[in-house]
């Protein structure tokens, strides 16, 4: 029993990490998005429809969900990417709420084995049973989640060392100066929004198949704000930052029984205090830079 509980908590940490990484990528390019939950939702519904209603295999459903989320991100990015700061944030918020409200009225059902399957407005979307039908155990599914998370994380780490990663950071610091290094800031920002959409989409598709049931109100703005807060707690200097944020919130606070009823009170206060001391999180750029320096010295000393 406890094992199942543990597997579920650990799986949840894995899934929420995707949306945290997604919000983090936009923080790196200097934009706050309150709306990454929209891409999570689009993919959750899209992949659920693909596997439960069209009978697609799981892997194809996941891929389809992630691509759909990327496409949705492209649609938002093109008109909003030239908005700066606050305006962009509110636009993402408006978009995400629009998506949620559309799923509140979106109904698309077909009859499978004498039962109606598919999204039914605010009643949600039941019986996304692909992983149970193909006899994947909860533990195996957890491994799938972490396998994909590892792939995405390695992608982020490669990105951070690449020129593209540097371009994202440049835009985050000074878009005008970056334009004057001969780079088309708009194009790179659209690219960042789409990449972030795909990453959130992977998480959404995984979520729908673990929970087997999704409803619009799961994808409210609180999910997006949590995703954002994780990056800001953990730090914007490295992709490990948002994962540390997730671990602190779910791993640490969830496990301390004494504060279970007051988790949001403690978490909210903690984040607010942290933002005063370290506005760019625990592992901010300076901290990461310092750690890299120590690491280099260490390697030199051992060689």
């Amino acid at each position: 029993m406890d094992d199942i509980y543990l597997v579920t908590v650990v799986s949840n940490i894995g899934m929420i990490s995707f949306i945290a990484l997604s919000a983090y990528l936009l923080l790196v390019v200097g934009e706050i998005s309150f709306g990454q939950q929209a891409f999570f939702a689009v993919s959750a519904y899209g992949s659920g429809i693909a596997t439960a209603m069209w009978g697609w295999p799981i892997w194809l459903g996941l891929l389809w969900g992630a691509l759909l989320a990327g496409a949705a991100a492209l649609v938002v990015a093109i008109p909003t990417v030239r908005l700066r700061g606050l305006y962009f944030s509110v636009a993402t918020l408006a978009f995400a709420e629009m998506v949620r409200l559309i799923f509140e009225i979106f109904t698309y059902q077909v009859e499978i084995d004498g039962e109606l399957v598919g999204p039914d407005g605010s009643d949600g979307f039941r019986d996304i049973r692909a992983i149970y039908d193909s006899n994947v155990s909860a533990f195996e599914y957890m491994l799938i989640i972490y396998g994909l998370l590892a792939v995405v994380l390695i992608g982020f780490l490669i990105l951070e060392r690449s020129r593209l990663g540097a371009i994202f950071r440049m835009i985050g610091e000074d878009p005008m100066l970056t334009e004057m290094q001969g780079l088309n800031v708009t194009v790179y920002k659209i690219l960042a929004v789409v990449m972030a959409g795909v990453v959130a989409g992977i998480g959404g598709a995984l979520y729908a198949h673990l929970a087997t049931y999704v409803e619009p109100k799961i994808f409210n703005v609180m999910l997006g704000v949590h995703a954002l807060a994780y990056g800001l707690i953990g730090g914007l200097g490295t992709a490990f930052g948002p994962l540390i944020g997730v671990a602190i919130d779910i791993g640490l606070l969830e496990s301390i029984r004494a504060i279970s009823g007051y988790r949001m009170i403690v978490f909210g206060g903690l984040v607010a205090l942290l933002l005063i001391v370290r506005p760019r999180g625990l592992l901010d750029e300076a901290a990461v830079h310092w750690l890299r320096g120590r690491w280099r010295e260490l390697r030199r000393a051992t060689h």
């Binding site: 020129r163 540097a166 371009i167 440049m170 610091e173 000074d174 100066l177 290094q181 780079l183 750029e285």
Partner: peptide, 19 residues
């Protein structure tokens, strides 16, 4: 105007991106 949160070497390196 420099990228304050990047190292000195990176600040020069980034100018090559669009070559």
């Amino acid at each position: 105007r420099i990228y304050q949160r990047m190292s000195v070497r990176e600040n020069v390196w980034v100018a090559q991106h669009s070559l």
